[in-house]
Computed example of a mutant assay.
Amino acid sequence: MSQYFLSVHHDSAGDAAMAAMTEADMQRLFTQVDGFNNRLQAEGAWVFAGGLMPIEQSTCVDATGERPIVTDGPFSESKEYLGGFWIIEAADLDAALAWAAEGSRACEGKVEVRPFQSE
């Protein structure tokens, strides 16, 4: 089994849509993602997952110079940012892509799939 990183990306358009969601819409989304997480666990594909706080709450540490420099905000300016992720185990890329399709439906957003480097 190989491990794959399934990442959920957000952008300003998605932020606006999320801000406009009702409480019922948010609960529906949470229920969908929870169901997907439960299925990953039941089928033995789950390693771990997490949702991330908004990009405005990020901090960047640059220790490439003499002293570390710590700044508020994201590392780079981008239209998209990482909002959450799953780490899964799957037999192959096709299986990981099938899980990503289910995850995309559950979170109602795009999911990027990247394999981890093998040893």
Score class of each variant (00 low, 15 high):
residue 2 S to C: 06
residue 3 Q to C: 04
residue 4 Y to L: 08
residue 10 H to V: 07
residue 10 H to N: 08
residue 11 D to S: 09
residue 12 S to N: 10
residue 15 D to R: 06
residue 17 A to W: 10
residue 18 M to S: 13
residue 19 A to E: 14
residue 19 A to W: 09
residue 20 A to E: 03
residue 24 A to S: 12
residue 26 M to Q: 13
residue 27 Q to S: 12
residue 33 V to P: 00
residue 33 V to K: 10
residue 34 D to A: 11
residue 35 G to A: 11
residue 38 N to F: 08
residue 39 R to C: 08
residue 39 R to A: 13
residue 42 A to E: 00
residue 43 E to W: 07
residue 49 A to G: 00
residue 49 A to V: 00
residue 50 G to A: 12
residue 51 G to Q: 14
residue 51 G to V: 05
residue 54 P to T: 05
residue 55 I to A: 02
residue 55 I to N: 07
residue 56 E to V: 13
residue 57 Q to K: 07
residue 58 S to A: 12
residue 59 T to I: 14
residue 61 V to T: 13
residue 62 D to W: 11
residue 64 T to M: 15
residue 65 G to I: 03
residue 65 G to Y: 13
residue 70 V to D: 09
residue 74 P to C: 12
residue 76 S to W: 05
residue 80 E to F: 04
residue 81 Y to R: 14
residue 82 L to H: 01
residue 82 L to F: 03
residue 86 W to C: 01
residue 93 L to Y: 10
residue 93 L to W: 07
residue 94 D to W: 08
residue 95 A to D: 05
residue 97 L to W: 01
residue 99 W to F: 12
residue 100 A to K: 01
residue 103 G to P: 01
residue 107 C to H: 03
residue 109 G to W: 02
residue 110 K to H: 12
residue 110 K to M: 13
residue 110 K to V: 08
residue 111 V to W: 01
residue 118 S to V: 08
residue 119 E to N: 05
